[in-house]
């Protein structure tokens, strides 16, 4: 019996955040968050026992913030993540140094696709 994969959700639109939490929970994930700000998300990642398996990041957050620093923090720890954003125009600048490039889903996207992408994100290859 393995524990449920822990997925960090960073999303500032509270209704959409609630939807993500619901669909990911229904699909068997443990949702961490949702967090609406960079600081809250980074504090979560830095917490010693966070044990994250993956993350979905909204790119542009309230107050002109982007989740770029969150992506960096995840990248530094080798935690996979995908972008789930309404604003793909600013993506190039944020994702340029990343290789392989993270998956980018542009809202609105069918929830089944979100679940599928999160599943393949946390599933190690060759298994």
């Amino acid at each position: 019996m393995t524990r449920r994969p822990r997925i960090l959700v960073v999303e500032d639109e509270f209704l959409y955040a609630a939807l993500l939490k619901r669909i990911l929970s229904d699909a068997g994930f443990e949702v961490v968050g949702p967090h609406a700000t960079v600081d809250a998300a980074i504090a979560e990642i830095a917490a010693a026992n966070s044990g994250l398996d993956g993350a979905t990041l909204d790119l542009s957050l309230a107050g002109g913030q982007t989740s770029g620093p969150v992506a960096q923090a995840l990248w530094d720890r080798g935690i996979p993540f995908l972008f789930l954003t309404g604003d793909d125009s600013i993506l190039d600048a944020s994702a340029a140094p990343m290789s392989p490039r993270p998956v980018v889903l542009v809202k609105p996207v069918p929830v089944a696709r979100v679940v599928r992408e999160v599943q393949s994100m946390v599933t190690p290859p060759h298994v």
């Binding site: 639109e13 209704l15 959409y16 309404g86 809202k107």
Partner: peptide, 14 residues
């Protein structure tokens, strides 16, 4: 507009 569609999606789903 995209955010609004995402909200609509959430509300429709719920």
């Amino acid at each position: 507009v995209k955010n609004l569609l995402a909200i609509v999606q959430a509300v429709a789903a719920f």
